[in-house]
């Protein structure tokens, strides 16, 4: 059986060869130029992605539809095959959870009263935007995902993103109907945190692995594996006391955090349209809001504050 080569250099004219060589050199220059420009200008990549993110997201959603149908079909089958034992266990768990409802309501009410006394905004007061993760992190050096909610839904840069388990990341760039999240594990992520048991503050630095590192921790000896790590609220991007993860055993002399959220299986998330607490000097400079209805009530001067201003 004779082999047939698809390359037939004899058939390619000199002009075609020169044109191809020229286009190769131009393509290399364009790629290098874009890379160098992105290195010089930090915002360049974000601006490019902001321009095209609304094109990318619908394409990804369309491609995903057959998989969604298969997954939902599997869920229906699973629901029908749920055994009687599992149903009984779920009913029992439901009854136990119902017993906790009054206690939870009481704590929420107490929390609201105390926050009102301290004039602290509650994260429960912030509007929440539900979104679905369109992509998942899969790169060797990037931990970002696309969400199907954007500026039209009220999403802004720096808004915190959480799932049912804890903090996922923050909004990096926003299109009209989609946005990109910088996950807490990304190399560029830095989050001020506190250790719940000791109250010590630190910075949680992403390192492109599942286990971000705790740095600038003064009393590391007071921290034990298993201690919960929460947002401290410093810096104003994240509200305080959002759960992030737990401290793991030290590795290579570093304390790391095991994240509560399963970042490789993200599906539905909440974007907190959180207005951060401004520094006192900004509160003084901002005029107090007029009360049109004359009720005398004055809201804290937090609305409309851009997160960038705090950063």
């Amino acid at each position: 059986m004779s082999r047939i080569s698809t390359r037939t250099p004899d058939n390619v004219s000199l002009t075609q060869m020169l044109a191809q060589r020229a286009s190769f050199i131009i393509a290399i220059f364009i790629s290098l130029g874009l890379l160098i420009f992105g290195k010089i200008d930090d915002d360049f990549n974000l601006q490019v992605q902001r321009l095209v993110v609304d094109i990318v997201t619908p394409v990804a959603q369309t491609v995903r539809k057959p998989v969604d149908w298969a997954v939902s079909l599997g869920a229906i089958v699973e629901a029908y095959t749920l055994s009687a034992e599992e149903s009984a266990a779920l009913r029992q768990e439901n009854d136990q959870l119902r017993l906790l409802v009054p206690t939870s309501d009481q704590l929420a009410s107490e929390n609201t009263r105390l926050r009102a006394l301290l004039a602290l905004p509650s994260i429960t007061d912030s509007p929440k935007i539900m979104a679905r993760s369109v992509t998942h992190p899969g790169s060797a050096f990037l931990w970002t995902v696309l969400l199907d909610a954007g500026a039209d839904d009220g999403v802004e840069v720096y808004h915190p993103v959480v799932d049912h388990a804890g903090v996922v990341g923050r909004i990096l760039s926003v299109g009209r109907r989609s946005s990109r999240v910088l996950l807490v594990t990304d190399l560029n992520s830095r989050i001020p945190v506190l250790i719940e048991s000791s109250g010590d503050r630190a910075i949680m630095e992403g390192n492109n692995s599942r286990l971000p590192v705790l740095s600038f921790l003064e009393a590391a000896h007071q921290v034990s594996p298993g201690d919960r790590v929460l947002t401290s609220g410093d810096g104003g991007v994240f509200p305080s006391l959002l759960p992030i993860g737990t401290v793991t055993s030290p590795r290579e002399g570093e304390l790391r955090v095991e994240i509560f959220a399963d970042l490789s299986r993200l599906e539905y998330v909440q974007i907190l349209a959180f207005d951060p607490v401004p520094p006192p000097e900004q509160l003084v400079e901002e005029p107090l809001p007029e009360d049109d209805e004359g009720t005398g009530a004055q809201a804290p001067a937090l609305d409309g504050l851009e997160p960038e201003a705090v950063e």
Partner: peptide, 15 residues
């Protein structure tokens, strides 16, 4: 653009 990588990186490698 899709994965959020520095623009130009993959094109340079593929070229």
């Amino acid at each position: 653009i899709l994965i959020g990588a520095p623009v130009g990186l993959t094109s340079l490698l593929l070229l």
